[in-house]
């Protein structure tokens, strides 16, 4: 079998905001189709910058980035829109448009992505479908300021997946949420992966999140998460430290890693099936 195509490739990518202070330092990795990559690292280690750079929202000062098979390193902004249309992104603070209702937020990519042509009458159905996916259909006409943090996160996920992108970037989907809501959000991410076979990058502080993604599958019949068993998932862990990639490997390798910084992110899973 031929190796699956890489949806995202970083080749010695460095990012600097102030000259001489690299926020990302020579990062290289590639994400093949179907993989879920868990990115961990302390606050300020460059996780958000990494995701934004992958989308071309930040510019790299060295190295090359290829997104969905296209080299985006030096592409001008107006040529990036068509590529970005095929990538969904959940921003760290949701970044919902606060002057629009939840429904308008979710409809936004459908209305504005030039490469996505959806007839007007199908629009509402699409929006509803996406909000049903995150179980937020009742909040259609609410404004983001009227939602709780967890609901906002879910609305933002609905907005990210509404166009059915093959690649998803989730920035800290569970940060600042209680364990139950965090579990719900992770379940959504796993559901998205297993229903639509999407590839994803998931930034998180919590090891349980990674553990869940690596070892559980969504069961469409019961709507719950079941242990993956022999239907093993393609999950890779990656740890950033001050802009450098200090670990990349499977969960087993991560748990065996002797580095003390990396070790701090590994905890015994708190919840089982």
């Amino acid at each position: 079998m031929a190796a699956a195509a890489n949806l995202l490739e970083f080749d010695k990518v460095s990012v600097e905001f102030d000259a001489g202070v690299p926020v990302l330092d020579q990062i290289s990795f590639s994400v093949p189709e179907g993989q879920t990559r868990i990115i961990m690292g302390a606050a300020g280690s460059g996780k958000t910058v990494l995701l934004k750079t992958a989308m071309g929202l930040n510019r790299a000062c060295a190295g090359r980035i290829s997104l969905l098979g296209e080299d985006i390193t030096e592409k001008p902004e107006n040529q990036l829109f068509d590529i970005r249309a095929r990538v969904g992104m959940l921003f760290q603070d949701s970044a919902l448009f606060d002057s629009m209702t939840v429904a308008q937020n979710v409809a936004y990519p459908l209305l504005n992505q030039k490469s996505i042509q959806i007839p007007r009458d199908k629009m509402e159905e699409k929006v509803r479908e996406s909000l049903r996916f995150v179980e937020l259909e009742q909040a259609l006409t609410k404004y983001p300021s009227e939602l709780s943090g967890g609901m906002r996160r879910r609305a933002a996920i609905a907005r990210a997946v509404v166009t059915g992108p093959p690649l998803l970037l989730y920035d800290s989907p569970t940060a600042g949420l209680d364990p139950i809501t965090a579990h719900t959000i992770m379940a959504l991410i796993i559901k998205e992966r297993d229903m639509d076979n999407t590839t994803a990058l998931v930034v998180t502080h919590r090891y349980q999140d990674g553990n869940l993604v690596a070892n559980f599958r969504y069961n469409p019949d019961s709507g719950t998460l079941d242990p993956a068993g022999e239907r093993a998932t393609n999950t890779v862990f990656m740890v950033l430290r001050e802009g450098r990639l200090v670990f990349e490997g499977t969960q087993t390798e991560l748990e065996a890693c002797s580095d003390s910084y990396v070790g701090k992110f590994v905890k015994k899973p708190e919840y089982a099936a």
Binding site: F81, R84, F91, L96, F97, N112, Q113
Partner: peptide, 9 residues
């Protein structure tokens, strides 16, 4: 939200 706008086309 500005970044989100750019990300959403």
């Amino acid at each position: 939200q500005i970044d989100a706008m750019r990300a959403l086309g």
